[in-house]
């Protein structure tokens, strides 16, 4: 029971309190780049959830059964990148064969976030937090959901912004960055929710 409670806390923490984009400031590039439409941000979000969950699990296995026994902890970053990239590529190949529908939904986003800093970040943070295998996987999933949430919120706001009378000097990137900053401040309100 206590374990399930802990997993629940991990998810809430990953989605809201330690949101990857708005609190940890990782993965800003796709956040700004792909948040102009709700459709594409949903595709991107599902790809991120998928990759983060997978990456967390595999990176944990590599760290625990390969790098730690051999005393090669300093190879963490490069080994993770290698494994995650290979794994995502493999998954894409398989999806391409098995489900063309899923393939066209995830589309170009899957290879796009293969070695994104948020994906690598979640793998390394799992190790630093001494999570177990299940906790790490759940954390990866939660972080992906948090990423998607931030992306969707942003996309919704930006679709409204497109129709709003914005002063000329604020149009485009400036208003987007200001919006992102305000959202980040709003998410600061979740700090302290979980001790």
């Amino acid at each position: 029971m206590e374990e399930i409670q802990k997993l629940g806390l991990i998810i809430i923490s990953a989605v809201l309190v330690n949101n990857f984009i708005l609190t940890r400031f990782l993965g800003i590039c796709p956040f700004v780049g792909i948040s102009s439409q709700i459709d594409s941000s949903l595709g991107m979000g599902s790809a991120v959830i998928f990759v983060m969950t997978l990456a967390s699990a595999v990176a944990w296995l590599v760290q625990t059964f390969m790098l730690v026994p051999l005393g090669l902890g300093f190879l963490q970053t490069i080994a993770f990148i290698l494994v995650i990239a290979g794994l995502v590529q493999f998954t894409e190949t398989v999806i391409n064969k098995i489900s063309p529908t899923l393939k066209s939904a995830l589309g170009i986003y899957l290879p796009l976030i293969t070695t994104n800093c948020a994906v690598l970040g979640v793998a390394i943070l799992n190790i630093n937090s001494n999570y177990s295998f299940i906790q790490a996987t759940i954390n990866g999933f939660g972080s992906g959901v948090g990423f998607t949430l931030a992306l969707l919120l942003m996309a919704g706001i930006r679709e409204r912004l497109d129709l709003s009378p914005i002063p000329k000097f604020l149009q485009g990137a400036p208003i987007t960055l200001i919006t992102a900053g305000l959202m980040s401040i709003a998410f600061l309100g979740f700090v302290g929710m979980i001790k």
């Binding site: 590599v62 390969m66 190879l75 490069i78 080994a79 290698l82 990239a85 794994l87 493999f90 064969k97």
Partner: peptide, 26 residues
């Protein structure tokens, strides 16, 4: 150990991808 580990991971990934590309070719 570093060279062998990383080389091994790379080799397994590469081999796996090559196999997958062939097996799951559309």
């Amino acid at each position: 150990a570093s060279v062998i580990t990383l080389g091994g991971i790379g080799f397994i990934c590469g081999f796996g991808l090559a196999y997958a590309a062939n097996k799951f070719r559309v």
